[in-house]
């Protein structure tokens, strides 16, 4: 599929979902779709690092938390409108990503994971410790004001829903463009063989840093959406288990297929909600599911499907080739 067709397909699909939901859906469906968009974007943004660059960040929630808190605080200050608060937040997130990323990419493999995790816990402890600003473990209290802008009133759930889906689709298309660009292929090369990439003259460290910042950028977009959705920000947004959940979503859906993390997010939310409803042993059940996937399939659902599809295609090709002889 060419890039333009994909964009068109994405926009049409997004518009269709919005139209159908607004026409027939109830409040519950709106909620489900908004959460899916938010967590799907979180997982997709993380996959720029995990799937395409081969850097397993275990601290991605720092951007989620940073986005939510910085946006929430700016809105509570009452001095800025929603678009400018979002813009300032994204600039802050990029700076934070640039600074933290500079340190993190100096380390490889598991140490990269640990370091991202450590920086995330630093942010978490700031949020918990700085009670006068952040409300500590209670989260940002009193809700986040959502004054109307450009004729959009986000206090109205349907308008909020449309905005979240639109932002989601735009971001997904942007990420798609990034990973399909020459830059995206350079990232894959770094993932597969960083040494070779370096020999070919690729500035590997700079590319890694850019990927880190981009991933953080989209991660904080999902954080902003989250704070709009729940009208608040809570410390667990920046807690390590949020990062763990994002990785969990990626592995559930699959790393190699672009929309894998989105499917993973859907499966994860489905699992999460039902397990919470059925049993109090949430951790045990989720842990066992994760173990079964990691040790059993060793890849995500879409990865398995993708492999099966490709194997089928190559078998069909072999058969066609056999006929000709």
């Amino acid at each position: 599929m060419t890039a333009r067709l994909e964009v068109l397909a994405g926009v049409v699909l997004g518009a269709l979902v919005v139209a159908l939901t607004l026409a027939f859906g109830d409040k519950a469906l709106l909620d489900v779709l908004m959460r899916l968009a938010i967590f799907g974007l979180l997982a997709l943004s993380l996959n720029i690092l995990v799937g395409y660059t081969g850097l397993v960040s275990f601290g991605h929630a720092m951007f989620f938390g940073l986005g939510a808190y910085s946006f929430g605080l700016l809105m509570q200050s009452g001095a800025v409108s929603i678009p400018s608060a979002a813009l300032i937040t994204l600039v802050v997130a990029c700076i934070w990503g640039g600074v933290v990323g500079t340190f993190c990419i100096r380390l490889d493999d598991i140490y990269f994971s640990f370091l991202t995790l450590a920086f995330q816990m630093l942010l978490y402890s700031i949020i918990i410790g700085w009670v006068s600003l952040t409300g500590g473990d209670q989260g940002l209290m009193g809700g986040i004001p959502r004054p109307p802008f450009l004729g959009i009133n986000l206090a109205e759930p349907r308008q909020l829903f449309v905005l979240i889906v639109v932002v989601f689709v735009v971001c997904v298309l942007a990420i798609r463009q990034i990973v399909q660009s020459p830059f995206g292929f350079a990232l894959r090369m770094i993932r597969d063989n960083a040494e070779r990439a370096r020999f070919l003259g690729l500035p590997v460290q700079r590319y890694k840093l850019i990927a880190f910042v981009l991933s953080g950028f989209f991660g904080s977009v999902s954080g902003i959406l989250m704070s709009l959705y729940v009208s608040g920000a809570y410390p667990n947004f920046a807690f390590w288990s949020m990062s763990g959940d994002a990785i969990f979503m990626i592995i559930l859906g699959g790393l190699t297929v672009f929309l894998g993390p989105l499917v993973g997010a859907a499966v994860f939310l489905l699992l999460n909600d039902n397990i919470t409803r059925l049993t109090e042993h949430h951790g045990i059940v989720m842990g066992v599911v994760l173990l079964a996937i990691v040790l059993g399939m060793r890849k995500g659902f879409l990865d398995v499907l993708d492999e099966w599809w490709q194997a089928r295609a190559s078998r069909a090709e072999a058969r066609a080739g056999g006929d000709r002889q």
Binding site: V56, G244, H281, I284, G287, L290, L291, V294, L295, R298
Partner: peptide
């Protein structure tokens, strides 16, 4: 998962962190 990539090792550990915390709580 010794021969698998870092992601798999990390996920096995993550699964056990979830399980152990919950077991201890129980």
């Amino acid at each position: 998962v010794y021969n698998a990539d870092v992601l798999m090792q990390l996920l096995v550990c993550y699964a056990f962190i979830l399980i152990l915390d919950d077991v201890v709580k129980t």
